[in-house]
Design a protein around this nucleic acid. Structure first.
Lengths: 220, 220
DNA sequence: AACTTAATTTAGATTTGTCTAAATTATTTT
DNA sequence: AAAATAATTTAGACAAATCTAAATTAAGTT
């Protein structure tokens, strides 16, 4: 019922990785967690023994239903703390992730549920990601990536896929954040970069790499 | 500069124990931390190597100046979180200690200083213990124990020395908390128990064991 | 002062999470 | 399909934090 910090980090990372691809590989996970493939294999055996994931040697792995429940609990804690840090303690958007990485491992259920109530049961964290409720339910929030948005259509930034310090710094500089309204004005075939309008009349350019990481939900 | 959860628990506990007696013994510490004397000895060697404590085999130990600074940092975090839990999340007096034991090990300085500011730089935690400031300064707060209070003198409960769940439950039942006004009406020599008045006219009895753990600061 | 008892330390083992290097299995290329 | 390459797993080692059992030191008693 209670997991070590290390186990929790593995579970959480597998959950995020398996959203994009159905199955997660040893090398992928080692890369993400900045550890070695051999260490990943060791941990996979342990998590399999605890019935948190499906795993056969050389076949990759994915979380079981139980494993996903554990992951959603960790993500709930992480995102509630992020919301707290931004909303109450006035941390900036790009600072909250790192601190929440530590706080998320304090797994007292009463603490988290009371924190949730204190914050007014927020639906989304400061990066626009949905916060699971006390039962582990999470909003699907069908989002598309910026490159898929049609030209000359007003749309709303609702999240970023990658939350490294680098991307957050870049977005901050370009004055793009959750809730920013955008319009794609031009798409350059040569490098797949985009010319977009933010606010009323600011025109800026965005690389393909960056655009791939910006999530959009349509506005009316 | 950064210490493991285990090291922090040892440092914190030594700090509390050495207040009562000048030097802390292996058995005392093992008892307090629910571990074995041999484990204590191992950790003492490590903390000595890190210059956090003075220690010669068979001679007991006490924190160095550096060790005390580390301890005050941990205690600051613990008490700020206790204040947050009671004040903002509406935990009761007797629930906060356990949760704060976990939160205290998140040692991000910016987090703690912002939390401090958010809470309005509180001076005391919900048990009446002083909260060290960002520089590690702590109020002395010369308190006496209930058995030393003279008869028929109104006085103020300002803390408890022992914060086990058992004592907090007992105090809750007797409706004694920080800020409660008391008057000692009678002292029974046989068992050193006290008859006291709380509030306007409630008369109750308190054992010597309990009285020893109640800290008093005089009222006008 | 010698003996007994209590406290403390040492020695050696265990668990968790990690690592490197070697072996094995899978995949890709020719 | 065989050979080369890449991915993964196994084997064996290590550091941190703990334990038990045995040895050592200190303290208390007769």
């Amino acid at each position: 019922m209670n997991y070590s910090v290390s186990e929790e980090n593995y579970i959480k990372t597998i959950f995020h990785l398996q959203k994009k691809e159905g199955t997660v590989t040893t090398n992928e996970l080692a890369g993400e967690l900045k550890t070695r493939p051999a260490s990943v294999t060791d941990m996979m055996k342990k998590l399999k023994a605890k019935k948190l994931l499906h795993y056969q040697p050389y076949q990759g792995f994915r979380l079981t239903t139980d494993g996903s429940k554990v992951a959603l609990g960790i993500i709930r804690r992480h995102r509630l703390w992020e919301y707290f840090l931004a909303e109450k303690l006035k941390f900036t958007w790009d600072e909250v992730h790192e601190v929440a990485e530590e706080l998320e491992h304090v797994s007292n259920k009463k603490l988290i549920d009371k924190l949730d109530a204190y914050l007014g049961f927020p639906k989304k964290d400061p990066h626009g990601d949905p916060i699971p409720d006390a039962q582990g339910k999470i909003e699907s929030g069908k989002k598309i990536r910026l490159p898929e948005v049609p030209l000359h259509t007003s749309c709303l930034v609702s999240g970023v896929t990658n939350q490294s310090g680098e991307i957050l710094e870049l977005l901050k500089h370009k004055k793009i954040r959750i809730g920013t309204t955008l319009e794609v004005r031009k798409r350059f075939e040569f490098d797949q970069s985009l010319e977009i309008r933010t606010g009323k009349q600011t025109i800026i350019n965005i690389s393909r790499e960056l655009a791939e990481n910006i999530l959009i939900s349509y506005e009316s």
